[in-house]
């Protein structure tokens, strides 16, 4: 978090010093700020791991967009074809996320990806109840959800 703030500050400095307020220059400022922080991160304890986290975040955004589009195509196909192919059901998924923020993030991601919708979290915060639209292969669905949770949590830990 502190790394992102420094990156934005450096970007602002770059834009002000070059005197060019276009979007391309803003992007250049972001890249140069990131490079500068990556160079000094071994000297500053507060920045540890920042250089590794940014590419991971970009990869995750790409992965997320891919999942969002495939999810939509699959649900869309079932909506427009007359017979129902879906086998909906409510499953319980054990959570490895612990804090409120992590649980919220994981639940939101699950709501936006393949045929799953998070319904509620149990009172002791150990299980997330999910409504899934395609329960043909429950094992692979659970594996996919666990994989996504692992990738999401790797962003914060």
């Amino acid at each position: 978090m502190i790394g992102a703030a420094w990156n934005l500050l450096l970007t602002l400095a770059w834009v002000v010093l070059t005197g060019d307020f276009s979007g391309l220059n803003l992007l250049a400022g972001l890249v140069f700020g990131y490079l500068a922080l990556a160079l000094i991160q071994s000297q500053v304890p507060g920045l540890a791991g920042y250089a590794q986290r940014v590419p991971r975040l970009l990869l995750f955004v790409g992965f997320f967009i891919k999942e969002l589009v495939t999810a939509n195509l699959r649900v869309a196909f079932d909506i427009v074809t007359p017979p129902w192919h879906m086998r909906p059901g409510v499953i319980a998924m054990p959570l490895t996320a612990k804090t409120d923020f992590e649980i919220t993030f994981v639940a939101n991601l699950i709501s936006l990806t393949p045929g799953t919708l998070s319904l509620d979290v149990s009172d002791d915060r150990r299980v997330l109840y999910i409504h899934a639209m395609f329960l043909d292969d429950e094992e692979s669905l659970r594996d996919g959800l666990a994989e996504m949770e692992r990738r999401a949590l790797a962003l914060f830990r």
């Binding site: 129902w84 879906m86 086998r87 909906p88 059901g89 409510v90 499953i91 319980a92 054990p94 319904l119 509620d120 979290v121 149990s122 009172d123 002791d124 150990r126 299980v127 109840y129 329960l135």
Partner: peptide, 22 residues
């Protein structure tokens, strides 16, 4: 056509308590 519901048995409508089953 719903094939499965793992939430219903863990939910208590009177106290609104939701157990995890674990």
């Amino acid at each position: 056509g719903t094939v499965k519901d793992e939430l219903r048995p863990n939910y208590d409508p009177l106290t609104h308590e939701l157990k995890s089953g674990l």
